[in-house]
Design a protein around this nucleic acid. Structure first.
Lengths: 209, 209
DNA sequence: GTAATTACGGAACGATCGTTCCGTAATTAT
DNA sequence: ATAATTACGGAACGATCGTTCCGTAATTAC
């Protein structure tokens, strides 16, 4: 920090140093994502955060402000990470339809593998908080639009290259895909672990295009 | 209440009467459904319940046990009500596919009309609680199976009468329909109020069968 | 070293949580 | 009227909530 005081026309420069943080902020945020994802906002106590993040109450509050601010920062980070990996998947994709099926199959795999099925942090937050917290609502809505657009661009590209049937409008298909992705994540969160249920849904989805 | 005491071989019958409840238990449950649906389990305080149900703490606890028991009873009642109305819809249906579209259109209407969009109480509870409360998980899972079966029977009937294409397996289609219904309810809970988004999804869904 | 600043660990705060308890009201058979 | 029972209103409980505060540790320019 660097401060300048001016007293009676004389300037004094103070360049005082402070103790360095003993933890990495991004790593702490990743831990916060984990526990908020698992337990939800209301289900996660300040003590849970202290324990799971491994830093003291004061450090936690000094760094992130309060519980709501930490949650918002976690959710935004999660959003950004997922959005980037989604974009990358389509950038490296040779066949759009195959990539979309891979995305769904991956979601199903996660649902079946995870001993603790967490669903989707964004869907969970939407259901728990969007209605009562405008800031969360905006993040959820922005995410929806962003993901929808990523699917839209992918579908459009797929239709132009003939990989995807153009019987459905690209925008409609993108929204349809997003909707089914949400549904599957809810199913996972609800603890469904019968692979056949997911496979049946995927079969129906991908017979559409 | 009726009690029998036996003292030294003599039986004494006591038939003592008590004050009558000033509220209707089912009406109170409906109020509980409302507020739990709106605010979620963790978001609803005991004071919220007292205020919204209009009865005292003691009456509330005497009647329903505790908050979790009241929630379970509310969710079960909601499940039963919805299941019955769904069955009735298909019993009175002349065209299965039309009825299914009506169900979705109704969900969309509710999402757009409600000033406070509550989504679906079952979906909300699944996301918030199924993972941490086995009793809720069972209700959610039973509901999923029951609703899936209702759709399955309806689809099968529709396919036999030629109202629904039999290109899709009935079981697969039923699960697909359920999945999209969940998705739409999440969208509503997230506050989506652009009719075009819902219409696009419905268009895609119903082009499948 | 000293001064200045920030990080840390943990105690402590007031508020709210879900729940219990108590005194009184209501009800009806006796 | 009395006895027996349950319902009611509201105060009160201990526990936990999110948050703040304080004393000490660490860091670096001077």
């Amino acid at each position: 920090m660097f401060r300048i005081f001016s007293i009676f026309g004389n300037e004094f420069n103070f360049n005082a140093m402070a103790r360095t943080k003993e933890f990495n902020e991004d790593q702490a945020l990743d831990k916060a994502i984990e526990i908020f994802w698992h337990k939800g906002y209301n289900g996660t106590s300040a003590q849970d955060l202290v324990t799971h993040l491994g830093l003291s109450r004061s450090s936690l509050y000094d760094t992130f402000g309060d519980k709501q601010k930490l949650f918002v920062k976690s959710l935004k980070r999660y959003q950004q990470q997922n959005q980037e990996s989604l974009i990358q998947l389509f950038e490296n994709s040779e066949n759009i339809k195959t990539t979309i099926t891979e995305i769904f199959k991956q979601a199903v795999l996660e649902s079946l593998q995870d001993r603790i099925t967490k669903g989707c942090f964004m869907v969970n937050s939407a259901v728990e908080l969007a209605m009562h917290d405008p800031e969360i609502a905006k993040i959820v809505h922005d995410n929806q639009k962003a993901v929808e657009d990523i699917f839209y661009n992918a579908v459009k590209k797929g239709q132009e290259s003939g990989q995807i049937s153009d019987k459905q409008e690209a925008r409609s298909l993108a929204r349809f895909i997003f909707n089914n992705y949400s549904g599957i994540r809810v199913l996972a969160r609800a603890g469904e672990n019968d692979k056949q249920v997911y496979d049946d849904i995927l079969k129906a989805i991908f017979s559409l295009f």
